[in-house]
């Protein structure tokens, strides 16, 4: 999204920007050279950060005897797709993928909607209890989740929500929503209030101001927090493992456990890495889909004060 959208500041590629190119033209050549250097730096950073990912990917197609070699194999001798095949043909993987999607999508959508309202309140309004609300949201973030496992379990038990996807979604809101409130507050605060006011004077309703002005402008923030919530909910393990009792209800994180060693079989690292790759892919795909939607509604001109 934002990360991928056209940037006026990035000189060399600024063909689509709305800002007049006039004052910058004389510096373009030097800028292009600088951009080239920065591109090289970016590639280097990507290579360093990406190396563990590369290692995960090649491990997922290595045969077991090529993993953990004394002389590390940077490219497998033999490719094996049995890890991927095993995971993709496993009906439990498909069940768990669906469960993970339901839990994660619901968590993200609810926390974005609920968090956005909360963020609007503290970014745009003054009201009694505002500070209490801010601190409460902060403290919630500090509670170590592992300590809450038993109390949460008892709570859902008495509400008859244990062993349900909905129960887990509620628990996940606890750690995705506060972050959403906090981050969106900042993004909303950065939007000039004059924009809302001008729109109100132009005859927009409050709802239209929200929908037509604020929502598109916090797009990058929405995506950043959305992906954040997605990643947290998608990767959570302790709560999912404790509260979801049936195999048909468990999530992908619980699924990954089966590749570890147990008292009667060894660890299947190729399978684990294949499953982990397949678990990580949805986040990347999601992000790519979102970016095209969001950047369409986000024009550089609208951000100008």
């Amino acid at each position: 999204m934002t990360a991928l959208k056209e940037q006026p500041t990035s000189g060399a590629t600024s063909g689509t920007t709305s800002s007049p190119a006039g004052p910058r033209r004389p510096r373009n050549r030097r800028k292009a050279a600088a951009t080239g250097t920065w591109n090289a730096v970016a590639l280097f950073v990507a290579a360093v950060l990406g190396f563990p990912i590369f290692w995960m990917l090649i491990t997922s197609v290595k045969t077991s005897s090529d993993i953990n070699r004394l002389v590390p194999l940077f490219w497998p001798h033999h490719f094996t797709w049995s890890g991927f095949a095993g995971v993709l043909t496993d009906p439990i993987f498909r069940d768990d993928l669906l469960n993970s999607l339901v839990i994660t999508l619901s968590t993200v959508l609810i926390s974005i909607v609920v968090g956005f309202f909360g963020a609007m309140a503290i970014a745009r309004f003054r009201f009694a209890g505002r500070k209490v609300f801010i601190v409460a949201v902060l403290i919630v973030q500090m509670i170590p989740l592992t300590a809450l496992t038993i109390p949460m379990s008892l709570l859902l038990d008495s509400a008859h929500l244990k062993n349900t996807l909905f129960g887990v979604i509620i628990v996940y809101l606890m750690f995705t929503m506060p972050f959403t409130v906090w981050t969106l507050r900042t993004f909303i605060a950065n939007i000039p209030r004059e924009l809302d006011e001008a729109a109100l004077i132009d005859g927009c309703t409050r709802w239209q101001v929200f929908y037509k002005i604020i929502l598109p402008l916090v797009g990058p923030g929405l995506v950043a927090t959305g992906v954040y919530g997605w990643v947290l909910a998608w990767n959570e393990f302790v709560i999912a493992n404790t509260l979801l009792l049936d195999n048909t209800k468990q999530t992908l994180m619980v699924y990954l456990l089966q590749f570890q060693s147990s008292p009667t079989h060894g660890a299947d690292y190729g399978g684990l890495m294949a499953a982990a790759t397949l678990t990580a892919l949805p986040v990347v795909v999601l992000f790519v889909i979102f970016q095209s939607r969001i950047s369409a509604g986000l024009t550089a001109g609208a951000v100008k004060g």
Partner: peptide
């Protein structure tokens, strides 16, 4: 950086983020 470099770096960042 240029758009293509941003796409690459962002994709790597996302992958890093997405790995449990």
């Amino acid at each position: 950086v240029s758009k293509w470099a941003r796409v690459i770096l962002t994709a790597v960042l996302l992958f890093v983020w997405a790995v449990p």
